[in-house]
Structures are given as C-alpha cells and as structure tokens.
Amino acid sequence: MPVISLNVNGKTVSVDADPATPVLWVLREHLNLVGTKYGCGVAQCGTCTIHLNGNAVRSCQLPVSAVGKNAITTIEGLSENGDHPVQKAWIEQDVAQCGYCQTGQIMTATALLKSNPNPTDAQIEASMSGNICRCGTYLRIKEAIKTAAKQM
C-alpha cells in the first residue's frame, strides 16, 4: 500500500493505507485519533465531522487520497487543553448526555462560527441539522453555540 503524507492538527504524518480509505478510519485506526466518531458511514449523522482547511467535512466520505496538502483539524487539534471557546461553552451549558455525537457537533459548530461569528437561531438550526443527537440535546447545543459566539 502507498505511503500517504497528511497534515493533521498542524503536524505532517505518514500513513500506509489504501488510497480509498475514508479519512475517518485513517484517523481512528492509523493515527489513533478516536475523537472523530463513526456513526453511519454515509454522511448522514455528522459524528465524523472534521475540518479541512477550516471547513466542516464528513470524514467518512472523504478518501484519504483526496486530501493532498489540505490541512486536517480534528477535535484533538481544536485546542491544546479543551479550552477552545466552543469546547468551554459546551462545558458551561453541560450539553452532553451520552456524549458520542458531541465531538462532531463541536466541529460543525466551530466551522459555523468561523464563517458566521454571530449566527441567528435559524442559521444555527440550518447548520447543525446534519448532526444527529439521539439523546436530544439540541437545545443545549444551540445555547452553547450562542455562549461561544459571545466569547469569540
């Protein structure tokens, strides 16, 4: 298998993987970055959301060969110690129940706030509707995004 070079969380890493492998599995099984979650494998649930050059993408549908020199950021790279304003807002609003979808929610929310620092409720709802939370924490996710918007 070819060795593929990637820029993940500011570091250059090499992985030996089938070029068709989705970035999700490269992160989880080759690089041991398990904060990016598997939920559906068909870009419907958002648990696998990462940033590619700052934009939210579904890593389960992104072949590793297509990444090239684009910068990947995962939840592990969002901040050194979990002190990104969005992560802090998630703690402040005590959003999580089971917590499985929350890293994906945070990555989507962070990309939203980067492109739109003061989103309206309708914009938050539109941007966040690709991320499923079976525990039903949507109201707190919205509050956390508003809390973070004030801090950013």
């Binding site: 398990v34 904060g35 979650k37 598997y38 939840i75 592990e76 979990g82 992560q87 999580a96 945070i106």
Partner: peptide, 14 residues
C-alpha cells in the same frame, strides 16, 4: 466527564 467528552478522549467501546 464533560472535558473528556468535548476533547474526544477514548471513552467509548469503539
């Protein structure tokens, strides 16, 4: 476990 959850620590079975 809030901080572990929002930083993506390996908490789950998978």
């Amino acid at each position: 476990e809030g901080v572990k959850i929002v930083t993506g620590k390996p908490l789950f079975g998978l």
